[in-house]
Write a protein that binds this DNA or RNA. Structure first.
Lengths: 231, 231
DNA sequence: TATAATCATTGACATATATCAATGAAGTGT
DNA sequence: ACACTTCATTGATATATGTCAATGATTATA
C-alpha cells in the first residue's frame, strides 16, 4: 500500500481536471478542492471493492485503472479508465454501494471527492447536471455496444473489438504498448484467457496483428474491422 | 396501424402517471400536458426504430412494450416496459437518435412527450433531475445484472433469470400469463429460440415449471433460484 | 544467483450451443 | 371451412468455446 495522500495545488489550477468540471464556477471548484484527496496506487492495487460503501467519486489523474464486475467465478471488465476520466458508479444515487470493483492496472494517481459534494453540485448547477447526464448516457451507449459485442459476436469479433477499444479509446495510438494482461484482455472480451491468446495467435499468423513483447501493432486495420463486423 | 391519437383529460388528473412526475409542480405538469399525445398501438407495432431521430419520451400507459437492440442478425431485448413506466433512450442527451427499437408486445397505449420539455424540466427542477438520475442509475444496474447473466451463465441460468424477471418484475404474479413469444424469451436470454424451448422442456420434465397454454407456473422457486445462482 | 511466483502459451478433450430441417399447432383472414 | 401464415416443438448435426494439464517465459524476491 502506497496510499499516502499527496496534496497538489488546487482544482482551479489543475491541469488534469476532468472535463465534467468545466461548467463549474470558481467557488464550486473550491468546494470540490476542499474535500478532496490525492492518492497514489501501485499497479494491481484495489481502489474499491464491489459491495462496499461508496463515498467518493474518483478521478484518475495518471496511470490506468479498470472497473470490473466480479461475477460468477470470473470478472467482466466494464471499462478501462485513463486520465483524465472519473469513476462514478450507479450505486451512488441508489444505495451508496459499489456495484463493481476498481483497481489500478498501471501505477496510478487519483483524486477522491466526496459524493455528497458532487450530488450537491448536480442539484445547484444545471449545466453541471446536464453534463453529468450526458456522461451517464455515453456510458450507457458504451454498455450497449459492449453487450452486443459480447452476446452476438464470436470470439474473433470480440477480440477485434477489444483491440480497437485499446488502440482507439485507451492508448490512442496504433503501435501501442499493451499494459494490460492477457487475462484482462479476456475479461474485456468475455472469454477465457486461453481463448484470447489463441485468437491473438491466429491474428498474428494471418498478418493482421504483430506482437513484439508488449508492443501491439494492428497491421491490417481494414481486415480487423471486417472481422469485428462479421462477428 | 391503429395510431389515432386519443386525448385523455390531462396529466394532473392522470391515474397512470409515471412516478417520475411526482416531483413536478402543477404548472410543470401542465407544461407536459400541453405538448403531449396519447397513442394506441396494436401488438407487434413498432413504436420507434433504432437509428431514427428521437423526439419524444414515451410513457406506456397500458399493455406491454419491449425495447431491443437490433444487433448482428438477432435482437437483444433490453427490457420489457409495462405501465406505468417510460422509455427514454440514452441518445436523447447525445445526438437525438434512438439506439434501440421499441415495439408493442401486447396491445398498448402510450403518452408521448417532447423531449425538449423533459430536458427543460431537468434543468429547472432539481428534484426532478435527481429522480431522473436515479432512474438512469437503476437502469444501469439492471444492465449490469443482465450483462453478467448473459456472459457468465449457461442457458439454464439465463432462462431461470428470464423467468424470474417475468414473474417478479413484469407480470408480478406467479402463475403468470405469458404474453411474450418464445422468440422474445430467447431474445431476453441471448440464445436461439430452439434452445430456449429446450430448456423450458427440461424445466417441465424436472417439475420446476408447468406450462399450460400461455400460463406459466414456477413450481419450484427454490430450485430455480439455485439454477440461476449456479449458472 | 537461485528460487519462487506470476504470466503466457500450447495441445487435447469435453460440451454447451447454434444451425438446419422437418413437423405440428394455433391463429387469421377470406 | 379453407388455405395461409405465424409460432412452437423436436431431432440430428456441426462447431465454438471452456476446461484441464503441461510447459515455457518472465518477473519478483530472498
Amino acid at each position: 500500500m502506497n496510499g499516502k495522500p499527496v496534496f497538489f495545488s488546487n482544482c482551479a489550477d489543475c491541469s488534469c481536471k476532468s472535463s465534467i468540471f468545466k461548467s463549474l464556477t470558481a467557488e464550486e471548484l473550491e468546494l470540490i478542492n476542499k474535500g478532496r484527496f490525492h492518492v497514489a496506487y501501485k499497479a494491481g492495487e484495489i481502489m474499491f471493492k464491489q459491495g462496499t460503501p461508496s463515498s467518493h467519486f474518483i478521478c484518475v489523474t495518471s496511470g490506468l485503472a479498470k472497473i470490473y464486475i466480479e461475477g460468477y467465478g470470473k470478472n467482466l471488465i466494464l471499462a478501462l479508465i485513463k486520465p483524465v476520466d472519473y469513476i462514478f458508479g450507479p450505486g451512488v444515487y441508489i444505495d451508496n454501494k459499489h456495484y463493481y470493483s476498481a483497481s489500478a492496472v498501471e501505477d496510478s494517481t487519483a483524486c477522491l471527492v466526496d459524493t455528497i459534494i458532487f450530488k450537491k453540485l448536480v442539484r445547484s448547477n444545471a449545466d453541471f447536471a446536464e453534463d453529468f447526464i450526458k456522461r451517464l448516457s455515453n456510458q450507457t451507449l458504451f454498455n450497449f455496444e459492449q453487450v452486443i459485442s459480447l452476446t452476438q459476436k464470436q470470439m474473433h469479433g470480440r477480440i477485434a473489438d477489444a483491440l480497437f477499444y485499446l488502440s482507439e479509446k485507451i492508448y490512442c495510438a496504433n503501435p501501442f504498448n499493451m499494459t494490460i494482461s492477457r487475462q484482462d484482455l479476456a475479461d474485456i472480451s468475455g472469454m477465457s484467457k486461453e481463448s484470447a491468446i489463441r485468437i491473438l495467435k491466429e491474428f498474428k499468423e494471418e498478418g493482421i496483428l504483430s506482437v513484439d513483447g508488449n508492443l501491439f501493432d494492428i497491421l491490417n486495420i481494414k481486415q480487423l474491422k471486417q472481422i469485428s463486423e462479421t462477428g
